[in-house]
Design a protein around this nucleic acid. Sequence first.
DNA 1: GTCTATAGTTTGATAGAC
DNA 2: GTCTATCAAACTATAGAC
Lengths: 200, 200
Amino acid sequence: MLESPTTDRRSARREGTKAEILDAAWALVREHGLAALSLRDLAARVGMRAPSLYQYFESKHAIYDAMFGQAAQESLDAIMGERPDGSTREAIGAVAHRMFDFATSDAVRAQLLFQRTIPGFEPSPATYAPAVELVARVRHLFSDHGIRTDTAFDLFRAVVGGLVNQQLANDPGGDQYGRLVDPSVDMFLAYVSPNKKGKK
Amino acid sequence: MLESPTTDRRSARREGTKAEILDAAWALVREHGLAALSLRDLAARVGMRAPSLYQYFESKHAIYDAMFGQAAQESLDAIMGERPDGSTREAIGAVAHRMFDFATSDAVRAQLLFQRTIPGFEPSPATYAPAVELVARVRHLFSDHGIRTDTAFDLFRAVVGGLVNQQLANDPGGDQYGRLVDPSVDMFLAYVSPNKKGKK
DNA sequence: GTCTATAGTTTGATAGAC
DNA sequence: GTCTATCAAACTATAGAC
C-alpha cells in the first residue's frame, strides 16, 4: 500500500468526523427516540447542513447501520471481552449479569440491537458479525461447563432476555428487575444440571 | 335515556363504520408495519378520503388507542376468559401456553401491546384497563396455588415474555420456541415450590 | 357525512456554485 | 468539502362547499 502522509491525515480526519456524527446521532436518538432521527437535526448538532452528511454516509440507513455496528461491538466487548472464570455458577452468573446490565443500561441501544422497529432498515452482515460472534462465544463457554443442548442454551437466553424486557418495559431507567438475575440463574442451573445443585 | 329509533340506527351504523375502519387498520399494519399506518391508505381501504376518518376518530393516535383497547381485551379473553383448572402444574402450564400462543400469533398486535414503538403514543387508562385486569387475575390464580411472592410472579412473567421475545425475534411466524414452554414451566415450578416436585 | 382543496410541516436526497 | 437552493413526496389536520 502506498499512501502519502497527506492521504493518511485526510482519512484520519474523515474518520474523526464520522465518529463525531455518530456520537451526535446517539445523543439525538436518546433524546427524541430511535425513529425520530432526522438528517437536518443531526447535521445541525455537528455544525453542518444536512447535505454535507452525504460526504460521510451514503444514506440515513447507512448511519443506522454504523450505529448498529458500534452497538454490536460494544455488546461483544461488554459481555465476552473478558472470559468469565470461576465455577459454573460464577461464570454463568457473570454472563447473565453482564447481559442484563448491558441491555438495560441503554434502552435505545437495546431497541436498535434487539428489535426491528425502523421501517426498511436491516443491519448489513458485516455490522451484524460481532453479534454472531458473541453468541458463538457464550455457547462455547456453556459447552465448557457441560451445558451443550440447544434447549438449555435457548432457555438461558430467553430467561435473561425476559428480565431485560420487563425491566425496560415496566421500570425503564430503574433497576427493579436486577434483583431477579441471580435467582434466575439459580433456577436455570437447578433445572439444567440438577446433579450439581449442591456445589458452591 | 330517551333515544329515538332514528338515533339508535344512526349510532349503530356509526359503530359499524368504526369497526370497519379498525379492521382495515389492522390489515394495513400487518402488511406494512405498525409505524407505517397512514390515514390516506386507511381511508382508501374503506372507500373514503382521509378527512372523512375524522368523523369517527379525532386523531391518528385515537385510532391506535382503539386498536390497543381491542388487543388488550383480546388478551384478557384469550388468557383468562376461562379460568384454568386442574393441578398447579396444569393450571400454570395452561396460562403459560395461552400467553405464548396469544403473543406469538400476531406479531404486530404484540408490538402494539408490549412495546412503546410509536412516537408520542401512549394508551389511555380506559383502553389499558383490560391489561391491568389480566395481571390481577393471573396473580389471583397464582395465589390460589400457593405462589404469592412478587419475585415468583415477576419471574414467571419474565420467563414467558422471554420465550415470546425469542420467538418473535428469531423465528417470526414459526413455532420453534413453543417446545420450550413446558420445560420453562417445569423449571419455574421446581424453583418456586420445590417441595411439590414429585406431585403429578 | 363525504367531499375538494389546501394549509403547514417535515422528510430524504440531489444539483451545482464556490 | 461545505454550502444554498430545491425537488418531490409524504404526512396530519382543518375549512368549507355540497
